[in-house]
């Protein structure tokens, strides 16, 4: 079953990056100032690039599994009917465009709608701070492919973290209005931050094998970073909220359905085509 577990984990990482990249790309053409429109689009591109690396790896694993003889590789998820047996190769696009939301494994934080600039920045900050510590560790994964992707991604998220931290501070400690908006954003997003550190079953299994990152080991680093930035931003963490989870297992908020409907439309309306 290890192959399927590894694929699940890889898809979880890919889905995280794709969904957040997609969300950030919704700002293109609508940013508050040209220079920041460009900056956020760059970040979206980085995330989509990360997603592609993970999807391509997952596709390879899936195809290897099939060529090794049927059931052992297994179907990487229940939803991919289109990849029916035989020699039909799975690609990055098959994985991104032909899985329904119950097969997506991104955490709930990244699928939240953009809202205003404050909410977008805070979402990016929370997630980049997580990715920073996460990729730092994943570089030591026993899986060489994951480690390689982590090394490349780590450089990018270092920049994302710095950029988003600076914006959290600017908005938190800017005007009364910007501060209020940051507080509203915090109010809406805080409950999704916990899931980042709650390991799914596939994470637990792989962490024991030195393949996946042990989330408990990076949680305190994340909290320290958030505390430090919040201090400068004049923001206070809300009291402990009922943490929302389920994304890693395919139980999402209502938002993901709409996101995927839009994203996947062409592939679904014109199945089996090259684009």
């Amino acid at each position: 079953m290890e192959q399927k577990t590894l694929i699940d984990y890889t898809l979880h990482l890919a889905d995280n990056a794709l969904v957040l990249g997609h969300r950030n790309s919704e700002w293109t053409g609508h940013g508050p100032i040209l220079e920041q429109d460009i900056a956020l689009s760059n970040i979206a591109l980085d995330l989509i690039g990360q997603a592609r690396n993970f999807y391509q790896y997952a596709a390879r694993l899936r195809n290897e599994g099939v060529s090794l003889g049927g059931a052992r590789g297994g179907r990487m998820s229940e939803g991919v009917a289109a990849t029916g047996g035989g020699g039909v190769e799975v690609t990055e696009d098959t994985l991104a465009y032909l899985r329904d939301s119950w097969d997506y494994r991104n955490c709930l934080l990244v699928e939240q709608i953009n809202g205003d600039w404050a909410k977008t920045i805070l979402r990016l900050f929370f997630f980049s701070a997580y990715q920073y510590s996460f990729y730092q560790r994943l570089q030591q994964s026993r899986d060489r492919e994951l480690a390689a992707i982590a090394e490349k991604s780590y450089k990018e998220v270092t920049y994302h973290l710095r950029w988003s931290s600076e914006w959290v501070i600017r908005l938190g400690d800017g005007t009364e209005e910007s501060h209020r908006r940051m507080e509203e954003a915090l109010d809406q997003l805080w409950k999704f931050s916990g899931e980042l550190f709650v390991p799914a079953d596939y994470e637990k299994v792989l962490a024991e094998k030195g393949i996946a990152v042990d989330l408990t080991a990076i949680r305190s680093q994340w909290e320290e970073r958030v505390d430090a930035v919040f201090r400068q931003a004049g923001l206070t963490k809300p009291a402990a909220a009922w943490e929302q989870t389920g994304g890693k297992q395919g139980r999402h908020t209502e938002h993901l359905g709409y996101l995927l409907a839009e994203m996947q439309f062409l592939q679904r309306a014109y199945p089996g085509c090259e684009w």
Binding site: S41, A44, L45, R52, Y55, Y97, Q267
Partner: peptide
Amino acid sequence: ITRAPSLKRKATLIAKVQDEAGHGL
């Protein structure tokens, strides 16, 4: 952008539109 039918097209379309922002600038 949100409806680009493949990951490659998605990425290249974002890059193109971003270039246009840069050109405007």
